[in-house]
Write a protein that binds this DNA or RNA. Structure first.
Lengths: 379, 379
DNA sequence: AGTCCAACTGTAATCGTTTTCACTATCTCC
DNA sequence: GGAGATAGTGAAAACGATTACAGTTGGACT
């Protein structure tokens, strides 16, 4: 393959050309061309899907007429019937690649998130996909794993797919570069967003949400409230800011750490932290992975929740209700976030010149036992 | 729009043709054609992405030469350099629709699951996507919501996309119909599978896994072991069979119910069941939603786990470790399932005629506190 | 010097659609 | 009964790539 040179030349789907000895990803590349055995029942036994030309032939009309029938164009009833019959008889299905090429509309939107296994993104992606399919569009989903290089790779893929728009939860690193990039489609940021605001965005009111948690814990009698925040996204930052401000305003001393978004990291941090003097009474954590970490740490330290260690966090996943006395969390309007992102995208497509907008949605504080009123005193 | 007639004529991406007054899904349909404003920096300021023709023009060569450069064909170093420069200068990105049309390889695989929010499918889909992208393929994901009509709809979509293969977790209803269908791509079933075995499949050894749970509970001293199984998939059936057999063999009386796959259904069933005399000592449930339902029911009935009610289920999700004394579950090799499905698919593409294969993977029983040894006696 | 071959390169056909344009009926209206 | 609209139809040109085929070199060999 010689000179890979610049990645400007890389493409995604390598199809084995005649000169390449078809090694490479040969396993997949070009199996055999004539497709798979079909079982009778249908006229389309030849192995290849019928094209519009076949339909035209079968109906005795021109391809133009078939096309018009398919898109409800002006066609006489007689011919329309004949074409419809021919469509059925041949088992015709339009070829979307051809249609997209010709029409210059991919009817596809991109969705790039860090990891679909993060339940927040799972829920958002489901909402996005539903909205997309409802509008007759398809979704291409990519997992960046919080890795800027993969993000860039996938942005190129999106260009090659000629997507009509992108919904994107970028890393901080990508966020900085994003404004400089020259993409051929509009971008709607979700979950994270740039201060510059060149792009549309829909985000949670993170500072307010974090403040809600502080407020709640404070009201319940907690004073030494520590914070754990993710270090890859702006979300972590914003939640930290809200936490910091809310603490300060109440005369409390903020004590925050920034961690990689893994349960293990949180667990280790908590275990270590609770070993120090002036150990926190409560933790506020910026995502559900950290929530797990705290619960695990509590178990390891044999601390009960909330007496030994209170905790509140983000994302109202089904299980948060079930662990211990229930975990107090900020519920994000995931459905709404996904739908709004699609809505913003569609509006942007309609009016490309409109100034960018930032949709800030409020979270709800779901109070559970993990932040029950602090008992008399422990230390 | 007139006669919708048969759905043979429906297509997915409706692009507003000149005669339609572009009402319809107009919001999305065809915004304005000349695309979005680009900010200098790049030569590609015209708004349209450069095509191979533009590159050829810029480099002063034929399109064939450009194409060859892009696919590492035989080109002199001098021309290659010129073309590469031109690619960079024009900001060229290949058009995948065109490439797919011409090459007749969509390099796309379909993935149809019931709901991506089911963590089992989340994990599997992630594994599938990773494997696919690694092989230079894309994935189209669809959520059927256990609805056969949507499944059928999506199968048609897959045909229109000319996917090279499908990974599919069908409902029981679809499973019956599947063999009769005449699809133009190979199908690999996951999680659920037909007894007929016309298609490749990769599934858990469900009977064995369920038996493992019975065996374990029995060894722990439980005797009245009830079962809750999903009623939409073959998975539920198979797990029931395993349960039934393992109970019988031990001289225990099976008592099973089939429910719609929702936590609420399970909760209600358990609450009601525990109100009867001869109430179960333990529950075996066939998915993680039911697991939640049982835990909720226990809480509502103020029964502790496992003394008041023992429980074991399927899917080792992170949270199962955290609730109560930890939940005993069968861990499915989700990663492996996804990867194996892709592997089977690739092998099938290589050898379309090979007889179909069924890959049965074993689950691991992760023992936790929810099935601790039964205390002296309660009743 | 003439032949042959290897190594490049360009021309043009093709993939399956949509859409413009020209054309033919058919109908309406004086 | 002819002019002029109207509706329906087909031929052919795109869309952006890949690739078979036919040249065109230049060098090696006889």
């Amino acid at each position: 393959m010689g000179n890979a040179s610049s990645n400007y030349l890389e493409t995604f789907s390598d199809i084995a050309p005649p000169w390449s000895s078809s090694a490479l990803k040969a396993k997949v590349a070009s199996p055999n061309r004539d497709t798979f055995h079909t079982i009778g029942l249908d006229m389309s036994v030849s192995g290849k899907i019928a094209s519009i030309k076949d339909v035209a032939l079968a109906a005795g009309v021109s391809v133009a007429t078939v096309s018009r029938v398919l898109s409800n164009g002006p066609v006489s009833d007689a011919l329309r019937k004949r074409v419809e019959d021919a469509v059925r008889a041949t088992g015709y299905r339009p070829n979307l690649s051809a249609r997209r090429l010709r029409s210059q509309h991919s009817q596809t939107i991109g969705l790039v998130v860090s990891d679909i296994r993060n339940p927040f993104f799972t829920a958002v992606s489901r909402a996005v996909e539903d909205a997309a399919y409802r509008a007759g569009m398809r979704v291409i989903l990519c997992n960046s794993d919080e890795n800027p290089e993969r993000e860039e790779l996938y942005l190129r893929l999106m260009q090659e797919e000629r997507i009509t728009g992108l919904i994107f939860a970028p890393t901080r690193a990508m966020l900085d570069r994003l404004d400089g990039l020259d993409l051929d489609f509009p971008v709607v940021l979700i979950d994270r967003n740039a201060p510059t605001g060149r792009h549309d965005a829909v985000v949670l009111d993170n500072p307010r949400a974090a403040a809600l948690l502080v407020e709640h814990l404070h009201a319940q009698g907690y004073r030494r409230i520590a914070g754990l925040f993710g270090n890859t996204s702006t979300t972590g930052q914003e939640r930290h800011e809200g936490y910091q401000a809310a603490m300060t305003v109440r005369g409390l001393t903020p004590a925050a750490r920034f961690l990689a978004p893994h349960a293990d990291a949180a667990e280790a941090a908590v275990v270590e932290w609770m070993g120090q003097r002036d150990r926190p009474e409560a933790f506020i954590v910026s995502n559900s992975l950290f929530l797990m970490g705290v619960v695990k740490a509590a178990r390891r330290l044999k601390l009960t929740i909330p007496d030994g260690i209170a905790v509140a966090g983000f994302d109202n996943e089904p299980w948060t209700e079930l662990v211990g006395p229930g975990l107090t969390v900020i519920e994000q309007p995931v459905q709404d976030i996904g739908q709004s992102a699609m809505a913003l995208l569609f509006e942007r497509l309609e009016a490309p010149d409109r100034p960018s907008r930032r949709l800030v949605l409020g979270g709800t504080c779901v109070v559970r036992g993990s932040t029950a009123a602090r008992m008399a005193d422990a230390d």
